[in-house]
Design a protein around this nucleic acid. Structure first.
Length: 907
DNA sequence: GCGGATCAC
DNA sequence: TATGGTGATCCGC
């Protein structure tokens, strides 16, 4: 992996966080627990790991460790590791970026700068005019959340340095541990060196989630639309609440103080347990440890003259005022009463400021920026940019190179920044330096992706990697199913033992969602990577699978109309959403294979390692490396197929409707059904198929080093396809679609194909044309399509059906590899074809030196041969066109079916 | 659309 | 012995 170009170019890639810009992009905030969800930005080990290498000379806390000492210990523990090596490498890349930026800066003329200044100032003026100080935004942040929960539930941990996590990674530490330099995102074993008496508590996410729920119940009272960022952090817009609260009687703002853990004191005015003798509320908020901000506001503009600054405490009750500050005190009070945990909070006119504020008096404090411009600007003045959400360690470093550390400096350099950074970035900078941010909280938007990834000790055997990949796909599919999501882009992520990360993605025309569908794609991506490094194995420490490209509502509707299965088990009608099959069946299919694992792959690996810590390489390893579908993997596949077949037999009586004649085919086995379809199609299609397969053999012999495309793909399909035999989707009949397709005069050779005349005659006529590939190698479609106007294909609204291909789909012979596909699921079949096409075409292009750019030959010889990368890209783009074309045709079979079916109904 | 990078939590 | 997982976004290609 070379340095990406984008890192070398002058413009840097900096991201404006959604919550800080005026336009707030809705982000799904999963309330799942994430390892780092309690990380505190300014206190994160990884964020300044490299900074620690020598130059940090701050003095440390009294009883903890000297910062110098901390740095030394960390450096010793990390030095020489692969992780460290990679950190150094990344640092070099950043330095390179900075160097490029400085060069670019050196070339800027004063005239350019003046011009930029005018432009930026004009924009700044507009921003200033749109400044909105009318909202009151609160950011609530639980203090050392996970650690606090653990301490609460285990009194023994009190007053001891603790952290939540494992020897490999910590998610949170308490404040005691932080004095030793123990922080979030630090591996536990290093933390132990810093603080040998550190207690590492394994995380208990269910518990944190339960506590989080309690907190959120409280927050709802102040803003039912509050925006939770994680288990321990949320934004509230209390503007409306403040308005209403103005007229509230004291009673409504009165809370009783309880000792200990009573959970009852959650509603105003509610009588609760009396304080037990000698046990007072642990709340420093109300008693002796009251943090400074509650006593004397640090900012003159913070003084609130409306009412007494502190809540009025009478005996065992307390009345909060009506100001924002009082509201937030009330919130924190209630949180503490309910959970015995403390929270910090920030109050400001926008989210960006509120977030920074909540950090100001942490822990267990709050801070407000009053809603006037002067207060905002005073606050911003000396604020280090790094404190602002969205400015990470790289941005900080880059800006530091320009002499920018505080927001004032950020503002001063605005013209320069506009010349050195992308528009998005400098706009973001300008917002920050003016103290601007979002004033409304985005509602949860649509999710854009879903993923699973896992870290493990090195895995370098291909078959284990495939197996792992399959497991991840299953996991992902389960998650997707819970949310009812389907997507078109599958991405795998690989991290090798040197911590280098790679992602590889593939987008298919139809949405996928099942483990089988995803695995077909993911596996090909993985295979490509394995092949690329052959004969060296990929030495992985992490693998991930992601699905994205979820259709929006409109696209979904479209998909419902067009991407539909054409096989319909007669008595198992499913909703026409065409979505996932309710998976009792599917689960049964999957189980046999999974049962053979019994334990998960990771569990297995773990126990293996325990059994034989010296996992030395063997001859076997070498053998298996030589074939990506190694023997054992084939065995696995075979086993799976067998299992699936066994299951299939147990369900072998189903009612199908023939896609050709549309007659119901009683209770027959799938095999019998397939025979019927074959018979129905009849005619020369068979000979067509045989020709195709002879082609495929010819081509397979040409691939020298590896197995042929066809073989590899067919093998990989096996499991997935058979699992899908029962998983058919209902064909939704859409009259609109039908009208559209039929009314449009066609302009291609296949005009007649879409007449309203259904079934047999037409079908057999079509089948006679069955995939016309006589003279071409396996992926002749590459060649033949090159002559077509691909652009027009793309634009076609209602593409004309190309029925010989349709037929070849119906008998489920892959037009690329020529192998019969046993699946009856059109989507799955499509996936296979796409993958097959993609790979086949790329290889074919390489072999035949077809100009990947799809340009006339001149251009090919005019320049040197494109590099591997551009070659692949171009090939992919070619493949995409082909897929689009193929896909359109596949879609049309559905249209044909619909027409035919409607026709029949009319009869 | 892809891949790398950055960021948040 | 040992350095996470999930999701989003940006930008150049």
């Amino acid at each position: 992996m070379g340095t990406p170009l984008c890192c070398i170019l002058g413009r840097t890639l900096l991201r404006a966080p959604r919550s800080l810009l005026g336009v707030v992009v809705a982000v799904p905030r999963q309330l799942v627990y994430t390892m780092g969800s309690t990380k505190e930005k300014s206190d994160n080990y990884k964020d300044d790991l490299l900074l620690r290498m020598g130059l940090n000379d701050n003095k440390a806390g009294m009883e903890g460790l000297d910062k110098e000492k901390i740095n030394k210990i960390i450096l010793e523990a990390t030095k020489g590791s692969r992780f460290y090596g990679n950190e150094l490498k990344k640092e070099k890349q950043v330095n390179q970026r900075i160097e490029n930026m400085m060069q670019q800066k050196a070339q800027i003329t004063s005239q350019q700068l003046r011009k930029a200044q005018l432009q930026v100032d004009r924009f700044a003026m507009e921003l200033e005019q749109s400044r909105d100080l009318n909202s009151t935004i609160v950011h609530i942040d639980m203090d050392a959340f996970y650690a606090a929960v653990e301490m609460r539930d285990n009194p023994e941990l009190k007053d001891k340095p603790i952290a939540v996590g494992s020897m490999s990674m910590l998610t949170t530490s308490n404040y005691h541990a932080r004095r030793f330099g123990v922080r979030a995102a630090m591996p536990g074993f290093i933390a132990k060196r810093l603080c040998p008496q550190l207690i590492i508590v394994p995380p208990n996410f269910d518990k944190y989630q339960a506590v989080s729920r309690e907190v959120k119940e409280i927050l709802t009272d102040y803003d039912p639309n509050f925006m939770a960022m994680s288990l321990d952090e949320a934004y509230l817009n209390i503007t409306k609440h403040l308005e209403e609260r103005k007229n509230w009687p004291e009673d409504k703002r009165k809370y009783f103080i309880t000792a200990g853990n009573s959970l009852e004191n959650d509603k105003p005015g509610k009588e609760v347990d009396k304080l037990s003798e000698g046990e007072r509320s642990v709340s420093p908020l109300l008693f002796e440890d009251s943090p400074p901000d509650l006593q004397s506001p640090g900012n003159p503009f913070q003084v609130n003259f409306e009412e007494p600054n502190n809540p009025q405490i009478h005996q065992n009750s307390i009345v909060f005022g009506t100001s924002a500050e009082e509201v937030v005190k009330e919130i924190r009070f209630r949180i503490e009463q309910k959970t015995t945990l403390t929270a910090s909070a920030g109050i400001a006119p926008n989210t960006m400021l509120a977030k920074v504020c909540s950090d100001k008096n942490k822990p267990n404090g709050q801070y407000q920026i009053l809603p006037n411009r002067q207060a905002v600007m005073d606050f911003i003045k000396d604020l280090p940019i790094r404190k602002v959400s969205g400015i990470g360690k790289v941005t900080e470093k880059m800006l530091k190179a320009l002499g920018i550390i505080t927001c004032t400096e950020l503002y001063q350099q605005r013209a320069l920044l506009s010349l050195l950074f992308s528009e998005t970035s400098w706009h973001h900078f300008l917002h920050i330096s003016l103290g601007l941010g979002s004033t409304h909280l985005a509602r949860d938007g649509e999710r854009k992706s879903m993923s699973v990834e896992r870290t493990f000790s090195e895995i370098s055997k291909a078959e284990e990697q495939y197996s792992l990949c399959q497991e991840l796909c299953s996991e992902l599919a389960q998650d997707l199913q819970k949310k009812g999501l389907k997507g078109r882009t599958v991405t795998i992520k690989l991290k090798n033992v040197n911590f280098e990360v790679k992602t590889r993605a593939s987008t298919v025309p139809a949405v996928v969602s099942t483990a089988e569908e995803i695995f077909v794609i993911a596996k090909e991506l993985l295979r490509t990577e394995i092949d690329a490094d052959f004969p060296h194995p990929l030495r992985l420490r992490l693998m991930g699978v992601r699905l994205s490209g979820f259709p929006n509502e409109e696209e979904k509707k479209h998909q419902q109309r067009s991407i539909i299965g054409f096989l319909q088990p007669g008595n198992q009608a499913l909703p026409a959403t065409g979505c996932m099959l309710e998976t009792t069946d599917k689960d049964q299919f999957l189980k046999p294979a999974q049962m053979s694992h019994k334990k998960s792959f990771f569990d297995k690996k773990r126990s293996e390692r325990k059994a034989s810590p010296q996992d030395t390489f063997t001859c076997e390893t070498i053998n298996k490396q030589s074939l990506h579908t190694s023997q054992s993997f084939q065995v696995l596949n075979k086993k799976m197929s067998e299992n699936l077949e066994a299951v299939e037999k147990s369900h072998n009586c189903q009612t199908f409707i023939c896609p050709v004649c549309f007659r119901e085919q009683g209770s027959i086995s799938l095999e019998a059904f397939n025979k019927h379809v074959d018979a129905c199609l009849d005619g020369p299609s068979v000979s067509g198929n045989s020709k195709m397969s002879s082609c495929s053999h010819a081509s397979s012999t040409e691939v020298n080093e590896k197995e042929s495309v066809c073989d590899s793909v067919s093998l990989c399909e096996k499991q997935g396809y058979e699992t899908h035999q029962k998983n058919t989707e209902i064909t939704s009949i859409d009259p609109v679609e039908m009208v559209e397709t039929t009314s449009k005069p066609s302009n291609t050779e296949d005009t007649s194909a879409l007449s309203n005349k259904p079934s047999e005659e037409e079908c057999s006529g079509l089948s006679s044309k069955s995939f016309n590939m006589e003279h071409c190698p396996q992926n002749s479609c590459t060649v033949s399509l090159k002559n077509e106007d691909v652009g027009s294909l793309r634009r076609q609204e209602s593409p004309q059906p190309n029925l010989y291909e349709v037929i070849s789909d119906q008998v489920l012979v892959c037009p690329v590899c020529n192998l019969e596909q046993k699946t009856s699921d059109l989507t799955l079949f499509n996936v296979h074809v796409d993958v097959c096409l993609n790979k086949g075409i790329i290889q074919e292009l390489r072999k035949d030196k077809i100009n990947p750019c799809n340009q006339p030959k001149e251009s090919a010889k005019s320049t040197e041969l494109p590099n591997e990368r551009s070659f692949q890209n171009a090939a992919k783009s070619n493949a995409l066109h082909l897929m689009e074309k193929l896909f359109e045709k596949k879609v049309n079979i559905n249209a044909v079916n619909n027409v035919s079916r409607n026709h029949r109904c009319d009869k």
